[in-house]
C-alpha cells in the first residue's frame, strides 16, 4: 500500500522535521512517497528526491498551496492519500494545522505526535504534557498520523534517487486566504534542530538581558529558547517558547537559565540528553530533572559561563 509522507519545506529546501518523519515511515515499512505541495517548490522536490529511503516524490506546485493554507492542503492530501496505508505528517504548526482536516475528510481518527512505532498499527504517544505515555492501536484503514520529530533520528538527506512526478490537482476550497506573515529572522540554528539549546525564563527580568544568552549561544552554536513566562512578559517573541504548548526540543544539551521547571515547560525539553539548570533557588523543580545543577545568580553565572567556554 505504501506510506505518504508530507514534506515540510520553504519551497526551496526541505525542513529538518521531514527527515525524522521519513525514519518513522521506514520503521512502519513499505514504499515511501513524499508529497511536496507548495508554489514554486521544484527545488524542494529535488531535495526530497535525495532523501535516503524515499522511492517517489509527488510535486503539487500550485498557487493554492503557496502559503500552506489548511483548507486547500487538506483537500489535496485527503485525495492523494486514499491509496496509502499511512499518511505521515510532521507535528509542526503547519502539520498540526491541516492533518486533522485530512483525517476528518477520510473519516479516520488521527493519531497525534507519535514518538515510537511499535508496529504498523500501534504507536506510542505522550498525553498529559508527557506525564503519561499511551500505547495506541488504530483500526482505521488509512492511518493519519503526526510525528514528533524528537522521537526519531533524521534520515540521511543525501543518497536517495527517487523519481519525481508532478500531480496536477488544484484544490482551492475558497473559504480562506493568506493575508500576511511575520517570521522571526535569526542566524542561529532552529530551536527544534539545534544540538544545544539555552533557554531563559522569568528570572532573566527583561529582553535586554537575553543578550547574555545570545552571546553564550553564539559561542556554542546554540539556539535560544524561553519559558512561557518570558514570552508572556514580552522579553522575547512567541516562536522561542519551549513546552507543552510551544516547541518540543531534545538537543544534546539543554541549559535552563532562570526557569523554575513547571511541568508544562518540562514537557518541551525533558527528553534532552543532558540538562543543565542555573537557578538561584535550590528548591526549584528544574533541579529534579537536571544532570548538572548550579545554584547561583544567573547574572554572575551566565557571563562567567560565556568566558569559560
Amino acid at each position: 500500500m505504501g506510506i505518504l509522507v508530507y514534506a515540510e519545506h520553504d519551497n526551496s529546501t526541505i525542513k529538518g522535521a521531514t527527515l525524522n518523519v521519513v525514519t518513522a515511515a521506514a520503521k512502519i515499512g513499505g514504499d515511501i512517497t513524499v508529497l511536496v505541495a507548495g508554489k514554486g517548490c521544484g527545488a524542494a522536490a529535488e531535495a526530497a528526491a535525495k532523501i535516503a529511503g524515499v522511492s517517489k516524490v509527488l510535486v503539487a506546485d500550485n498557487d493554492a498551496y503557496g502559503h500552506q493554507l489548511a483548507e486547500n492542503v487538506a483537500d489535496l492530501v485527503a485525495e492523494l492519500g486514499k491509496g496509502y496505508s499511512h499518511i505521515l505528517i510532521p507535528a509542526t504548526t503547519t502539520g498540526k494545522n491541516f492533518a486533522p482536516r485530512v483525517a476528518a475528510l477520510l473519516d479516520a481518527e488521527q493519531i497525534s505526535e507519535i514518538i515510537t512505532v511499535e508496529s504498523a498499527d500501534t504507536f506510542k504517544r505522550p498525553i498529559y504534557a508527557g506525564n503519561a505515555i499511551a500505547t495506541v492501536q488504530s483500526s482505521d484503514s488509512v492511518k493519519v498520523i503526526t510525528v514528533r520529530a524528537t522521537g526519531f533520528d533524521a534520515a540521511a538527506a543525501e543518497g536517495g534517487s527517487a523519481s519525481v512526478e508532478a500531480v496536477d490537482v488544484a484544490k482551492d476550497a475558497g473559504v480562506s486566504s493568506f493575508v500576511s506573515e511575520e517570521l522571526a529572522k535569526s542566524d542561529r540554528p532552529e530551536l527544534t534542530a539545534a544540538k544545544i539549546v539555552i533557554s531563559g525564563g522569568r528570572g532573566m527580568q527583561n529582553g535586554e538581558n537575553f543578550e547574555m544568552l545570545y552571546k553564550v549561544a553564539d559561542k556554542l552554536g546554540a539556539a535560544v529558547g524561553a519559558s512561557r513566562a518570558a514570552v508572556d512578559a514580552g522579553f522575547v517573541p512567541n516562536d522561542m517558547q519551549v513546552g507543552q504548548t510551544g516547541k518540543i526540543v531534545a538537543p544534546q544539551l539543554y541549559i535552563a537559565v532562570g526557569i523554575s521547571g513547571a511541568i508544562q515547560h518540562l514537557a518541551g525539553m525533558k527528553d534532552s540528553k543532558v540538562i543543565v539548570a542555573i537557578n538561584k533557588d535550590e528548591e526549584a523543580p528544574i533541579f529534579q530533572v537536571a544532570d548538572y545543577g548550579l545554584v547561583a545568580d544567573l547574572f554572575d553565572a551566565v557571563p562567567e559561563l560565556e568566558k569559560q567556554i
Binding site: A134, S138, S139, I275, F287, V289, G293, L294
Partner: peptide, 23 residues
C-alpha cells in the same frame, strides 16, 4: 473509539543529577 489505548505508562523517569559548585 476506533483507536484502542492498549496501555498507559509513566514516562522514563529522569533522575536528578548532581549539583556543581561553580561555573
Amino acid at each position: 473509539p476506533r483507536t484502542k489505548t492498549l496501555k498507559v505508562e509513566a514516562p522514563a523517569a529522569r533522575s536528578a543529577g548532581i549539583k556543581v559548585a561553580s561555573v
